[in-house]
Write a protein that binds this DNA or RNA. Structure first.
Lengths: 167, 167
DNA sequence: TTGGAAAGTCAACAACGCTGACATAAACTT
DNA sequence: AAGTTTATGTCAGCGTTGTTGACTTTCCAA
């Protein structure tokens, strides 16, 4: 709340309201920059950010179900369905009936889906790569540490659970 | 592109595509968490994220003009106007004719505008504070460094230009 | 066989981006 | 003084992406 110094980390002066406000603002500007490059590509094709997110998470977990995707993305099925319907119609995503449970649909990227996902994520990675290089390895470790600490427990599990090795 | 090791920072293995993908994903999840708390308050009041942004930047630069706000937020005047109109009608923002240039409007937060902005930003700061404390001062420095490196030059100037002291 | 979960669809709505067109006042230029 | 530019505001309309609610179909499991 206020900067009463004297005790441990509190005295390191990076928890003042003003410092925290700057942190928020940095998040705002950085996130805008972070989405800007893929947004340009998406616009050419008449897609939006939601399409990118779907492509990203289907690539990350091939064969994932709609329900699983819903819980990761945190949107309603109606909202996701609109996006998926279009991606399937456009031949970027394939939806196949589940093996064990035939109510489920397993989602995969098609070749052209993979190609678009690669194009989008490469645009995004290019910016990340430049930023990481500029900031250096220690800064990157700190960056990741703060981002993870910022997530809710549930999100953190989804984030860390998506792959094997950590960061 | 690929992890051909051997030269300088490249060999530190934090620039592989997979590492960069994880960075992107961390940004996605963290940003969702970052906006979640104020979003809940805004929803109660029938406002959206755009209202929060306007309140934030008017508080940051009291007396700012509409044009200045437009260039910071990076939206069209029609879009901003819709938000400002509501905030002014609701008595959260005051708009006064400029002194030097009477075409301009100087924007300020009213008392209730200040109160809401405080409530929103405090909710956001609370999460930042917790994350910062968990991650520690070095991580915070790295976090800020990467976020700044991620911005476009123009954004970085707006970010750093808004106040006196840096980070 | 029946209950309920999973998936999909339709309708309607809201927030918030966008474009284009137009109005007004003030300031600047010629 | 007349014309142009700038700052702002507003109207109309559109698209993406979120929401709720209602409903159907499919199909697993008790």
């Amino acid at each position: 709340m206020n900067d009463r110094n004297g005790s441990g980390e509190e005295s390191l002066l990076f928890l003042t309201d003003e410092q925290l406000r700057m942190g928020s603002e940095a998040m705002f500007f950085a996130y805008r920059a972070f989405t800007a490059d893929p947004d340009r590509i998406l616009e050419e094709l008449g897609y939006g950010r939601a399409h990118h997110r779907a492509l990203h998470f289907i690539r990350r977990s091939p064969g994932t179900t709609v329900n699983n995707l819903l819980s990761i993305l945190g949107v309603t099925k109606q909202s996701l369905n609109r996006v998926l319907r279009r991606l399937i119609a456009d031949g970027l995503v394939s939806s196949s009936v589940g093996h064990r449970d035939r109510r489920e649909r397993n989602l995969h990227l098609t070749e052209s889906g993979l190609a678009l996902e690669r194009r989008l994520s490469e645009a995004q990675r290019k910016r990340m790569r430049t930023a990481y290089r500029q900031a250096g390895p220690e800064a990157v470790a700190g960056f990741r540490k703060v981002l993870e600490a910022m997530m809710d427990e549930q999100m953190r599990r989804q984030f860390l659970g998506g792959r094997e090795g950590g960061g």
